[in-house]
Design a protein around this nucleic acid. Structure first.
Lengths: 147, 147
DNA sequence: TATTGTTATACTCTATAACTATA
DNA sequence: TATAGTTATAGAGTATAACAATA
């Protein structure tokens, strides 16, 4: 297999993400949040809340860091903590009414804005891009185990 | 155009990048660097050096931050500064011998490791994935201007 | 003993703005 | 006046490890 042929893919992947992230981060900061904070709001949206453990697994934020990020969101009254009814060690994090409002108002705007990028995509293009990325993700996820 | 159909693409893109980044960051830290530091090493590799301005444009790191990151790499004796011969305000950053050695030794290893992900890709698959990502990048890059 | 979340430490990155020295 | 890079400031994320409470 030709060794260099995958390099453009990785390069383009990184650039795609950077292009997405550059826009995304700007919009996120315009609402007074950081990307990790938005990540948590988006993860908690449309759920009944979840434990720190689960939240950390979904957002890929480690527990020590997560405590700090949740602290800052709590200081902004966007999320709240409550004791788990089933496990005395566990805390449930969930959106407050203010957090729900932010999620409901800002998330669709955020999505719509990104959606403009796909104006010129046909339904077939969309399907094909999704399939390609799905395959790529499976491939990349395999790196760790094959190490 | 169906509004929701691009969401899986964005989601997969983020996951692809995270999968890549998770592995990449681990490898980078194992050689005592941070991702931004590695970014600079990789950008300076195989060049005769470049100004802070150019380096900042290529790595998307703003000038104030860049000074600090370069300071840390200089403290590790991986890069050096020298006055620009043509512009008295400008500094040229380039890899030291130690920096070149690190680049020459570690970069190929890094690339090869990522390359394993593409073991099951045919030449056609590679071409197609690259083309899809290139198209996606162009689309995403257009978001800013259309805002 | 193992797990959940908190705390403590130390460092790096980040944005922003004021500053200098050259152009 | 504008530009290249530095410095200063304040905040936020990160990894890591030690810790308390509970399982």
């Amino acid at each position: 297999m030709p060794k260099k042929s995958f390099l453009p893919i990785v390069r383009e992947l990184v650039r795609c993400y950077q292009a997405f992230e550059a826009h995304s981060a700007g919009h996120i900061r315009s609402m007074g949040l950081t990307p990790p904070q938005f990540d948590i709001i988006a993860t908690l949206g449309n759920t009944a809340g979840m434990s720190f453990k689960e939240l950390g697994e979904k957002t890929l934020i480690t527990k020590g860091t997560l405590t700090g990020v949740v602290d800052r969101l709590e200081a902004k009254h966007l999320v709240g903590r409550s004791a788990s009814p089933t496990d005395g060690r566990s805390q449930i994090v969930r959106l407050t009414a203010k957090g729900e409002e932010l999620f409901g108002k800002v998330f669709p705007t955020h999505i719509n804005h990104v959606g403009r990028a796909f104006m010129n995509y046909s339904a077939t293009d969309l399907k094909q891009a999704e399939s390609t990325l799905r395959q790529l993700r499976a491939a990349l996820a395999g790196i760790e185990e094959s190490a």
